[in-house]
Design a protein around this nucleic acid. Structure first.
Lengths: 364, 364
DNA sequence: AACAGCTACTAAATCGGTTTAGTATGCTAT
DNA sequence: ATAGCATACTAAACCGATTTAGTAGCTGTT
């Protein structure tokens, strides 16, 4: 007895050698093999022409045109995976960020993307959310996917990588790493000069989280700038962000503590714009007007800084430019012969953006 | 005569068959072939064991352990590209967004990422910045890179795709597309009810840009809700965002025009939070306090909405959830047999987030 | 003794391109 | 006549895995 078992009947998947008609009908894209059969030439010839390889110079124009025309008509697009495998080049890089939805990372990525796509590269992004095992694992997973290089944004990658690595605000002085760093000394000086010129002496600070790569250097720069300007730092009005998320909430909490200390201050320099926004909230709840009673300076100049009320005075990091620079440097390093020299550090300049959250200090 | 031409001496790149020692020394990762040679078994056996394939069940435990141990020690990681080519599966999808650095797209992507990485998928992101030729071209480039599916965020993809496509706030009713859409009727009702309960009758509106996929449906819903609540819409205080960027500036410009019309209004319902933020700026410059003189309602609930001053009342779109849902749906569609049924539309619910930018209408 | 059936593997095809080495053909120069 | 050379290609290896079909060796059964 024969039974028709409907759910066992499966459309046979045509192999790559099958006729064009079959491939197209089944939704498969046109392969080099079928294209070659269609024009009656070898795969080699077609490949050489499609890629305008040096080897194609002996192929006459008429034949080249024939091939190109057929490729166009059949909408042939070389399978990128097959090409990657053979050429041992993926035209892909990996980007590791703390959290993709954060304004900081988003701006850097926007810059990265700008340069990469232009050069025919694509990229994978992964957010590690400060989980150590992911920070370890993601670079390996990315390399398994044959990325040609890595960009780490605000992330201290510790596992050595087989591929070039560019860090944006990441670690310092690791072998094989190019660091894109801000001129922190200048950044601190810009902010501190601005505040002292406005007459502020009692300045509160919010330091970054301990895990953030910029925290230490930024704080050191602030201390140096303060000293140079003759400002003494009162440790009782120095707070530190705590927690792994990046929401204004963190700045809010720290600022509440600063207020609770009872210590007077007329200005506050926050670790970043996000925490400055939370700080302003807390200051207002504590009955201070911004900037009449307390001036607030942020850091980064994320997009929403300009549209706060009051608009935030901040030290601008050129984040998009840093992303572009990272991508550019990485591609150069990829193209360079192995063992070639590479830049260990590239310094970019901050800029003070004066808006409405700072004003002259209230007379004591 | 023999000459030593130093710069022509090139390290020979060992082939995959070469000894382990050679591969590791030259920085190449360990291949299946070299691993197999190392343990004295065939590539097939090693592959079966590594992947725990059904075919490995006839291989005794001792041998399996031997293989696994060697793999661990040599830090063998299968080349993902080779695997993709053979299996015809890339475990990669493509995500098309207007601009990666925008809060809206960033939140959706964050949700997408959450689900994808968990399932072993990676993704490429591309920002088209509303350029038509890129909206056409990127999906093709992504398919060339063998993505198994596409997610389009707030983007009307028109070229038919060979792979499953999920649109978040994208087009409607295209064959082959699953749309993740907000319940716009409910969204409009929530906002309008809130405003009318507060006593507002003269309400200004900011519509979205013509190219934005949500503009039409949202406006229709607002009109329906207004009618149901007995509110008449005064077309002279209905503005529309213009320009392709997404900065508060656009909302600022429109609101300036609304004010210039001279027509009175006590509330404003903006197309999104970004434009609401710009609108507040313009209203303030026009001498109105928020919310005493004018109440403002935004849309989306992007991260910075809560930290505006005043904190923004807004209709929350569950953006992260929409991203997760999109990823989940896409993976289900990828796993489904070709030709299988799939959801055409998935509706998600908005939520009114009452903050400080709305208050009772000033008595006339 | 012959055969089936199981165990423990392996050989070889395959994915879809790229690239190297080679070959057939026709032409020119000796 | 034939070596030499350019032209116009092609055959086949290769990238690094997965996967199918098959085989050698052993045990147990009739």
């Amino acid at each position: 007895m024969w039974e028709t078992i409907a759910h066992d009947i499966v459309m046979p998947r045509p192999k790559s050698g099958t006729s064009l008609r079959a491939r197209k009908a089944s939704g498969l894209s046109v392969s080099l093999k079928s294209l070659a059969e269609h024009v009656g030439l070898s795969q080699a010839a077609v490949s050489l022409v499609i890629n305008s390889s040096p080897g194609a110079k002996s192929i006459p124009h008429r034949t080249q045109e024939l091939i190109r025309k057929a490729a166009r008509e059949l909408n042939y697009r070389p399978n990128h995976i097959a090409r990657s495998l053979r050429q041992q080049r993926s035209y892909t890089i990996g980007v590791v960020v703390p959290e993709i939805s954060e304004g900081y990372a988003a701006l850097v990525m926007s810059g990265i993307e700008d340069h990469l796509l232009q050069e025919g590269y694509f990229y994978f992004v992964v957010s590690h959310r400060h989980r150590d095992e992911l920070i370890q694992e993601y670079p390996l997973m990315l390399q398994q996917r044959a990325v040609e290089g890595l960009i780490a944004v605000d992330t201290a990658i510790t596992s050595a990588s087989q591929v070039p690595l560019v860090a944006v605000s990441g670690h310092r002085e690791l072998p094989g790493v190019t660091n894109i760093v801000l001129d922190h000394a200048l950044a601190a000086t810009l902010a501190m000069e601005h505040l002292t010129k406005l007459g502020h002496r009692q300045i509160a600070f919010i330091k970054g989280q301990a895990f953030s790569s910029d925290t230490a250097i930024r704080w050191e720069s602030v201390r140096n700038a303060a000293q140079a300007l003759g400002v003494t730092i009162n440790e009782r009005i120095v707070g530190q962000l705590e927690g792994e998320s990046s929401s204004p909430e963190l700045g809010y909490v720290v600022t509440k503590k600063l207020l609770a200390s009872g210590e007077p201050f007329t200005a506050l320099f926050a670790f970043n714009d996000i925490s400055a926004i939370g700080a302003i909230q807390a200051l207002r709840e504590g009955g201070r007007s911004i900037p009449q009673d307390v001036s607030v300076v942020g850091f980064d100049d994320i997009q929403s800084a300009a549209f706060q009320n009051p608009a935030l005075t901040t030290v601008r990091q050129p984040l998009r430019e840093m992303g572009m620079l990272a991508a550019e440097t990485l591609l150069l390093r990829i193209a360079a012969p192995p063992g070639a020299e590479y830049p260990k550090e590239i310094v970019v300049q901050p800029e003070l953006i004066c808006r409405a959250s700072t004003a002259t200090a209230p007379s004591a």
